[in-house]
Nucleic acid binder design. Structure first.
Length: 472
RNA sequence: GGCGCCUUGGCGGAGUGGUUACGCAGAGGUCUGCAAAACCUUUUACACCGGUUCAAUUCCGGUAGGCGCCUCCA
């Protein structure tokens, strides 16, 4: 199983070989829970979910952890807006609870297996303790310094210790943007230094912290959260760190620096895997550009969240995908066709003995593609071949279910457990067929209209009528 | 300004130094009482200009256009 590694030392698809030779340990940067996730956010988690699925199907055990960033500027600001009467800490907690619940619903809706992931909140007591502990040790080790508004990490100290700041991206003074230097409003010593801890400002929630005799009540910086949560839950180094390409720098670079400053081994994770962004009208989808959609927007327009998942799987995770309604329509139609294929398992008229060899080889290709840097478009081609063949030839009642089970484990499209139609609907179907046999076309068409009103269409085959469900 | 990436048929999107993926959509036809997501056929794609090669969409160089990161960000 190969996956592309963003680390400069690799920058190519790399074999996944778990450090403990058995369990692949994955850490995925999760959402900041201050608002609904947009579909670009969700695409990152569809990527992480699919990666875990492919690794598991490749035969490894997997330990998958994802964090919730539930304390930062945005969450604090929003918590004041939504809960102005509550104390700051309580408001923040409530806001986190609310958007975590919404996020979890969105995750399930797009087919991500939430039960397979361990979620951790940045404000969990254990995480907070761990961050204070790490900051204290970084300070003692000379990698952190205290400024008026908080504690900062010193890139210079890190470099002087012989380690590389710039494992994911060449970092030089030459590629520091003018904006970053000019808009620098913090008390840090040099441009790339970043906050480990921020002192409390008026109205902000705060955790007690004393560092080297200084009262530092405040809150953690963003990067330190992931360093601590990943180590607490997975150990260090671990196998794969995922996130969107926007997190490559500075977030992941900073995580590496914090996580390895005090270690002999400068490796935080063996592989860093990043997904590309969704584009809208050729531009990155982002909250600041106001060109984003939430899952709710799609649902309100009548789209199935799984059609969005399928749309994402139709393009490679490392290529930018332009999001269009037309494209979502296409994915929705494909999803409907796949469901029609899967639903044939309930119908004798669509059953037919099929040789195992073609099923087996397509299954093999499907898995091979997923293990080749998560080439889901290629895997989907194999699935389409299989499903297309099924529609043409009928499905084998003995082989279809085990096959659907594997298809679901890889794609997460929920094709395996689709229910049969009701007895009443079966009776309608039989009555229509009887009318047809008697060439009572009027009655036959009337019964077909009835079925259609219940979302069922019928096609007449040489072995009898086969139903399929209309959209939704 | 620095670094990196991309450019494939109506749309989306794989892939390959020589044999027209795949999905969706359109057209024609088959089948059908009519239908049907069924079947067949079809719409002769690889930004542009050079180079390497027997042969380039595929390799190299350049041009144009686009995108991303360098600042919160999936």
């Amino acid at each position: 199983m190969k996956i592309y590694n963003t680390l400069l030392s690799s920058r190519k698809p790399q074999n996944i070989t778990p450090l403990d030779s058995q369990t692949v340990r994955i850490y995925s940067c999760g959402p900041t829970v201050y608002d609904h996730a947009h579909i670009g956010n969700l695409s990152a988690y569809i990527f992480a979910d699919t990666l875990r699925r492919a690794i598991a199907l490749a035969g490894f055990d997997v330990l998958h952890v994802m964090n919730y960033t539930d304390v930062d500027d945005k969450t604090i600001r929003r918590s004041h807006e939504e809960y102005p009467k509550l104390p700051a800490a309580e408001a923040l907690k409530r806001l986190g609870d609310k958007y975590i619940a919404i996020f979890a619903d969105d995750m399930r809706a797009v087919g991500n297996d939430v039960a397979a992931v361990e979620f951790i909140r940045a404000t969990d007591a254990k995480t907070i303790w761990g961050m204070k502990d790490l900051i204290t040790r970084l300070h003692a080790g000379g990698f952190a310094y205290i400024a008026d508004d908080g504690v900062y990490f010193s890139i210079e100290a890190y470099r002087k210790s012989g380690k590389t700041y710039g494992q994911l991206l060449e970092v030089t003074t030459g590629n520091t943007s003018e904006a970053r230097i000019q808009n620098d409003e913090y008390d840090k010593e040099s441009a790339h230094d970043f906050a480990l801890w921020k002192k409390q400002k008026d109205g902000e929630p705060a955790w007690d912290f004393e560092l080297d005799g200084h009262g530092m009540a405040g809150r953690p910086g963003w990067h330190i959260e992931c360093s601590v949560m990943s180590r607490q839950s997975l150990g260090q180094p671990f196998d794969i760190h995922t996130g969107g390409v926007d997190l490559i720098f500075p977030h992941h670079e900073n995580e590496i620096a914090q996580s390895t400053a005090l270690e002999k081994n400068p490796v935080m994770a063996t592989i860093f895997a990043h997904n590309e962004h969704i584009l809208i009208d050729g531009k990155k989808m982002s909250k600041s550009l106001h060109n984003f959609y939430t899952l709710e927007d799609l649902v309100q327009k009548g789209y199935d969240p799984l059609a969005f998942r399928l749309k994402m799987l139709q393009s490679h995770y490392r290529s930018q995908t332009n999001f269009t309604w037309e494209g979502l329509d296409a994915a929705g139609n494909l999803l409907q066709n796949l469901r029609a294929w899967a639903d044939q398992k309930h119908q004798k008229a669509a059953h037919k003995a099929v040789a195992s060899a073609p099923y087996a080889s397509l299954l093999k290709e499907m898995l091979a593609a997923s293990q080749d840097d998560l080439n889901m478009p290629r895997a989907l081609k194999a699935l389409a071949d299989l499903a297309g063949k099924g529609e043409a030839d009928g499905v084998d009642p003995d082989k279809i279910q085990p096959l659907l089970n594997v298809v679901d484990r890889l794609f997460g499209l929920r094709l395996a457990a689709r229910p049969d139609i009701t007895h009443a609907q079966k009776d309608l179907l039989a009555a229509r067929e009887a009318a047809r046999q008697q060439k009572d076309w009027a009655k036959s068409d009337e019964l077909r209209a009835q079925l259609q009103s219940q979302g069922l269409n019928v096609r007449d085959t040489t072995s009898g009528p086969v139903w399929y469900r209309l959209a939704a």
